[in-house]
């Protein structure tokens, strides 16, 4: 019952001979990404402390690297790469849409409450 596996990652940049090799390759990649995160978190380079879109560059890097890791866990460890596009979209887009919505609303409101506290309980003074 050997199943078909797609054996390339990074859009065909890195091809593997077998599924087991691909697993180890993805492990290597995930470990490198985690190491980069920890090293950045400990050094905290000066340039990454600047704010972009309301958050430090460093935090944006962390979030992007997290999503990268999540992608490879889902696509290669959970074999999402080998599923039909119908299943993939039903699972991934549903979750992404709802999570983005929820996060946006809650963070927006959290920021609003902070400003109300910060400005002596006045948000808009007409």
């Amino acid at each position: 019952m050997a199943q078909e596996h797609k054996l390339e990652i990074f859009r065909g940049l890195w091809k593997f001979k077998s599924n087991i090799q691909k697993i180890w390759g993805v492990l290597l990649f995930l470990s490198i990404v985690t190491t980069i995160e920890v090293v950045l978190g400990i050094i905290k380079p000066e340039w990454s402390m600047a704010h972009v879109l309301g958050m430090k560059i460093l935090n944006w890097i962390f979030i992007i690297l997290t999503i990268v890791k999540a992608y490879y866990i889902t696509w290669d460890f959970m074999h999402m790469r080998d599923e039909t596009s119908g299943l993939r979209r039903a699972v991934v887009w549903t979750a992404i849409f709802l999570i983005l919505y929820l996060t946006f609303i809650l963070l927006q409101e959290g920021g609003y409450v902070f400003e109300v506290y910060d400005n002596g309980y006045i948000k808009r003074d007409f």
Partner: peptide, 12 residues
Amino acid sequence: AAYGFSRFKFID
């Protein structure tokens, strides 16, 4: 997201 809400509320 709830954690994020509280954190943004006390961001400083």
